[in-house]
Write a protein that binds this DNA or RNA. Structure first.
Length: 388
DNA sequence: ATAGTATGTCATACA
DNA sequence: TATGTATGACATACT
């Protein structure tokens, strides 16, 4: 806030509208303001301001360059605990520069944030989106996916320039409080996504991208042990919900959550990405489980079919064996029968010329073999056998 | 060093 | 259209 004095801000002029002071409130650095009263923001330690943003570039305020509120970020502490001057300012006015609180946190390493959102392909050029966590001229923080600037560099990005002021601001109109005081702000900032968030999404390959410094790799490996990357990202952007909540929440609750809480474009994008990734992660797990089940079932089926095949083969062998035995028995029986047969003249019947034929009525005929092979065409010529 | 496996993510199709 | 699901493909970490 001391910087306000340095930049000589005339609040009566510069802060012309859109900041509802009646609603102005202080925010905890580790959270994002929730409109409802059940905000889970008790872990805060240091209060700081959030200002409401509006995106109309024509409303740029003379002397209200937000850099007056946002000092150079690199290694500077933005001590907003001295909130006495703007104590009652709308807590959401600066909602989109919450990231700056990162800078104020102890042990904050800009590289950590940058690596969380690093687009690996920006280092390798297969994708053409770049992702910069940055503070624009107006002091806002946003992503830059400018394909031209193909490096990801927080130190360079913070305080970077955003030409499209019309895209700069995430607006939250809040007049419902009934307060229309003079002390309002217009603060422009950029959350420009020139590419889809997915494309900006750092993928796992970024964790070990060739050329990445050992320090970065160490950091990522260390953090990776405890927090998922989305959890790291959520933490970095002070998303006031757990990744699990974001993923599991019913869609209605999810949408109402997005509308009820003052979230920056950046935060909303991240939350949606987290939800999408979380859902897809579960889907992938289910898919793999299902695929594994299918494979296991198919393997079982193969085993069962192989066992069945072996059984059938054994049954077939047994049947063949039985058939052989029955044939042998039949042969022996015929031999026995023919040995006892005599023709009308008392001579033995030659089994090479005759065959036995059983009829359905139980009678047995002695049939010349040529008649048997000709398909019983001359049934009338069959000869009644006389049993001995 | 290498291969195999587990997991996360993305792109895409589909419901 | 938005959202969720399914799945192949790919990359990475791990064993």
């Amino acid at each position: 806030i001391n910087s306000l004095a340095h930049y000589n801000v005339n609040f009566t002029q510069a802060i012309s509208h859109d900041v509802n002071l009646h609603e102005a409130m202080l925010l905890y650095p580790n959270t994002t303001f929730r409109r409802d009263s059940v905000a889970r923001t008790s872990q805060a330690q240091e209060q700081y301001l959030q200002l409401n943003f509006h995106s109309n570039p024509e409303q740029t305020l003379p002397g209200t360059n937000i850099t007056g509120f946002v000092p150079p970020v690199d290694n500077q502490m933005w001590n907003l605990t001295s909130q006495d001057l703007l104590y009652d300012l709308d807590a959401n006015i600066l909602d989109e520069i919450n990231l700056l609180s990162l800078v104020t946190e102890e042990n904050f390493d800009p590289m950590e944030i940058s690596q969380l959102f690093e687009e690996p392909d920006s280092l390798n050029s297969s994708h053409h989106c770049n992702f910069s966590l940055s503070v624009c001229d107006e002091g806002a923080i946003g992503y830059s996916s400018d394909p031209v600037s193909s490096h990801y560099d927080l130190e360079g990005a913070v305080g970077g320039y955003y030409p499209e002021s019309s895209k700069l601001c995430h607006t939250h109109q809040r007049n419902e409080s009934g307060f229309h005081g003079d002390l309002t702000f217009h603060i422009f900032h950029d959350h420009t996504y020139h590419t889809k968030p997915d494309e900006l999404e750092p993928t796992s390959e970024s964790l070990s991208w060739p050329g990445k410094s050992q320090k970065v790799s160490r950091y990522l490996n260390d953090t990776h042990r405890n927090l998922s990357r989305d959890e790291q990202r959520a933490k970095a952007l002070h998303i006031p919900f757990s990744v699990d909540e974001i993923v599991r929440m019913p869609v209605d609750s999810f949408n109402s959550m997005l509308s009820r809480y003052y979230l920056t474009d950046l935060q909303v994008s991240l939350i949606r990405d987290i939800r999408r990734r979380g859902k897809n992660k579960v889907a992938a797990q289910n898919c793999r489980k299902r695929k594994l089940d299918i494979i296991l079932n198919l393997e079982d089926e193969v085993c069962n079919l192989q066992a069945k095949k072996e059984t059938l083969k054994r049954e077939q062998a047994q049947c063949n064996k039985s058939i052989t035995i029955m044939k042998q028995k039949l042969h022996d029986l015929c031999h026995d029968v023919f040995s006892r047969l005599k023709d009308s003249e008392g001579r033995p019947v030659d089994p090479n010329l005759y065959a036995l034929q059983c009829n359905h009525d139980g009678t047995v005929l002695i049939v010349p073999k040529e008649l048997v092979t000709s398909g019983h065409k001359k049934e009338g010529q069959k000869e009644k056998v006389r049993r001995n």
